[in-house]
Design a protein around this nucleic acid. Structure first.
Lengths: 151, 151
DNA sequence: TCTGAAACCGTTCCCTC
DNA sequence: GAGGGAACGGTTTCAGA
């Protein structure tokens, strides 16, 4: 996908404030409101922008414990099966299949340590899961969104 | 922090469309537009909502390779030092210190495998980094934002 | 907490380059 | 193809009751 300088600037501005008006965005990048709308619509159509959303603070919402969980599954477990098994847990906010000895890595938010432990148990009890290995997040250092790739 | 049902509903709606008008949000939850604005402003002030932002598709933006990197550092390396060392890389989109044998876990986006390799080398060459261990993401299964915690 | 009014914005259409 | 500008209807915002 071809993103020119204006697209990149618009994405950067929207990353910081997704509720900015088209007129304001236009003033910042040197376009009219209607031109900005056209470009933003196009970025959505082409899939670069998948949604306008809010960034939430897990701690402020009562999620005090965060951790990464590696999933070890029986041989030839499909990604779809893993997805199905973990998607039922709202505590799982991120999941990917990975290379290496684990089959998948999950990121989990829990209200407290007991809650984390309980979720871990329930995930470990899924038929497709042979065992898990988890690490707790001690302190978040950085949290960014993907930036447009500079060419 | 105390979030009532209305706050939770508003957060859920904004998570799906952060550009929804206050009038529309109000129609969905049964409030007037001005009442909705007051609540959203309060959620921002209290830190539950930290920003309105866009969700971007890394692949559509040209980031084809994603991986997790565990960082092993010299004893008594501070979180601040790790943060400083990794924040300079725009490819690092997520970083946290963790429990266990590694000191930190990073999530990295790269344009391609060569790029990933190069970033990994550069991170490994930082003075505070003793060694790294990385896994590649094969396929993303799930990507959510933290939801309000049901009481 | 609600209402109302002025300012502002999203959206569309048409024109120009 | 892309941008500018105008016009309309809806929205935001704030004051006042």
């Amino acid at each position: 996908m071809r993103l020119d300088r204006l697209d990149q600037d618009l994405i950067a501005l929207l990353t910081e404030d997704a509720r900015a008006s088209y007129a304001e965005l236009g003033a910042r990048v040197g376009l009219s409101a209607s031109a900005v709308k056209r470009r933003v619509d196009r970025l959505r159509e082409r899939g670069a922008i998948t949604a306008f959303t809010v960034r939430l603070d897990p701690a402020a919402l009562g999620w005090a414990v965060e951790g990464y969980v590696e999933l070890f599954c029986a041989q030839s477990t499909t990604p779809g099966a893993i997805r199905k098994a973990v998607a039922r847990f709202p505590e799982v906010v991120d999941a990917s299949t990975v290379s290496g000895d684990a089959n998948a890595v999950l990121r989990i938010l829990a209200a407290d340590m007991r809650h984390f432990e309980r979720v871990l148990e329930q995930i470990g009890a899924q038929p497709i899961v042979a065992r898990t290995r988890s690490v707790l997040v001690l302190s978040p250092l950085l949290r960014r969104t993907a930036a447009p790739r500079p060419d």
